[in-house]
Nucleic acid binder design. Structure first.
Lengths: 211, 211
DNA sequence: GCTAGAGTGGAGTTCTGATTCCGCTTAGGT
DNA sequence: ACCTAAGCGGAATCAGAACTCCACTCTAGC
C-alpha cells in the first residue's frame, strides 16, 4: 500500500519515522497549498529540518514523483481488485474508486497524467481496457465507447477536484452519474469522434508548466 | 470583442500597436508555457522591452486578469446570443461554444473560475440558468439537472484542455456528447446529489495556487 | 522642422524558494 | 559505557523571475 519501488535500505528507526512523517506532511501541505507548497513548510509541518528533507528525497520533484507513484499504485490495485471481482458494473465501480483516490491525493494531480511517470500510467491502461471490454460484453456500456473516452473522463476529474476542494467528492460522483448515464446503451447517439490514440499519447507525454 | 473596461486613454499609434502585440504574444505564450510563462519571454515575443510591458500592464497579474476578463466577455456574449436565438437546444450550443472559447484561451484557464474575477463569473450565471430553464421547458434536458451541474461540467473542461493541448477541441466535444446524453430526459436516474450552492460559492472564491 | 512629453529598452534590484554544506547529535552494535 | 557512522538542523548560497528606474528616442501638434 505504501510503495512499490524498493530503494529503501532499512533506515535507523528515528530516520524511518521522520521519513513517514515527511510523506504525510507533504500530502497535507500539497492538498492545502497546491503544488506550490514550499519545502520549508513541509519540513516544518513534519517537525524536521530542511536538511532532513533533502537527505531523504534529494529534490522536491522527487518527492512529488514518489507521491504520484503511490497514487498510481493505488489505482492499479483498485483496478485489479475490480477485475478479480468480475461483476458487470466493474468499470463504474472502478471509476468511482478512482475519483475517491484522486480526491484524497488532490495535491499532486497536476503531475499525474503527464511527465515522467507516464510510463507508470501505461500500467493502468490495459486494466482499464479490460474493465471496459467486460462492461461492454455485459451490455452495461455501449460499444462505441473507447478506452480514450475513459481516459478523457478521468482527466476531466482533475479540474473539478482542484476547483471544488473540500466538496470534490460530491461533485465528482455526480459528474460520473451524468457521464456514465451517457455511456449506457440506451443513451442518445454520439455526434463527435473519440480522441485519437496519437493525440492521447501526445497528451500523456506533455510536460506541463512548473519547472 | 476586444474588451469591456474603458481605461484606455487613446495611446500614441506606436504604443497602441505594442499594446496589441503584447496581448497577442501573451495569449500565445500562455497557451504554450502555461501560466508560468515569464514576462521577459512575452515581451521578447512581442518584440518590445520589459519596460514597455510594465508601463502598459503594471503587473503580470493585471495582464492575466485582463485576458480572463476578455474571455468572460466572450462567454457572456455567446450566452446572450443563444438566449436571443431562443431555440430549444440553446444550452447545448452554448456549452459547445464555451468549450471552443476555453480551448482558444487555454493559457489562463487556471485563473478563470476562481480568484478576483469571480464577480465577473457571476454575470454569467443568470444567463446560463436561463438557458437551462429554457432547455428544460422544451424537454431537451431533464428537470433534475441544476445550475451547479452545468458549472461543474464547465469546470471539468479545464483539465481536459490543459492535458490534451492541441487535440482539446475534439476531446471536449466528445466529452460533451456523453455528459449531455446523460442529461437527457430518457437517461438513467441519478444516484448522487448535486453540488450544494454553498460548496459552489466556496469553490468560486477559492484563491488557487500561484502567488 | 521643432519641441514637449509620451514611450521605450534593458541593466540592476529585490524577492522567493530550492538546494548545499558542514559541524553537531544520537541510535544501536560491542 | 563507548564508539562510529547514520542522521540532523538550519544558516548560507544560488537561481530564476518579477518589477524599478532613468537616460534616451520617437510621435504628433505647431
Amino acid at each position: 500500500m505504501t510503495t512499490g519501488a524498493g530503494t529503501e535500505t532499512k533506515l535507523r528507526r528515528d530516520a524511518a519515522d521522520n521519513h513517514r512523517r515527511l510523506l504525510e506532511a507533504a500530502v497535507a501541505e500539497f492538498s492545502e497549498q497546491g503544488m506550490d507548497a514550499c519545502v520549508e513548510q513541509i519540513a516544518a509541518r513534519a517537525g524536521v529540518g530542511i536538511g532532513t528533507f533533502y537527505r531523504r528525497f534529494g529534490t522536491k520533484d522527487a518527492l512529488v514523483e514518489r507521491l504520484v507513484t503511490d497514487l498510481l499504485d493505488e489505482l492499479v490495485g483498485s483496478a485489479e481488485r475490480r477485475i478479480a471481482a468480475g461483476d458487470g458494473d466493474g468499470l463504474e465501480s472502478y471509476l468511482r474508486e478512482v475519483a475517491t483516490a484522486l480526491v484524497h491525493h488532490r495535491g499532486v494531480l497536476a503531475r499525474l497524467w503527464s511527465g515522467k511517470p507516464a510510463e507508470h500510467a501505461e500500467r493502468l491502461r490495459p486494466l482499464m481496457l479490460q474493465l471496459l471490454a467486460h462492461a461492454q460484453a455485459q451490455g452495461t456500456i455501449r460499444p462505441e465507447v473507447g478506452g480514450n473516452d475513459i481516459s478523457v473522463l478521468m482527466w476531466s476529474l482533475r479540474s473539478i477536484i482542484e476547483i471544488t476542494g473540500a466538496a470534490a467528492g460530491v461533485a465528482c460522483q455526480r459528474q460520473l452519474d451524468f457521464v456514465i448515464a451517457g455511456m449506457r446503451p440506451g443513451a442518445e447517439p454520439l455526434r463527435h469522434p473519440a480522441l485519437s490514440d496519437r493525440a492521447r499519447l501526445k497528451a500523456e507525454h506533455r510536460t506541463p508548466s512548473r519547472h
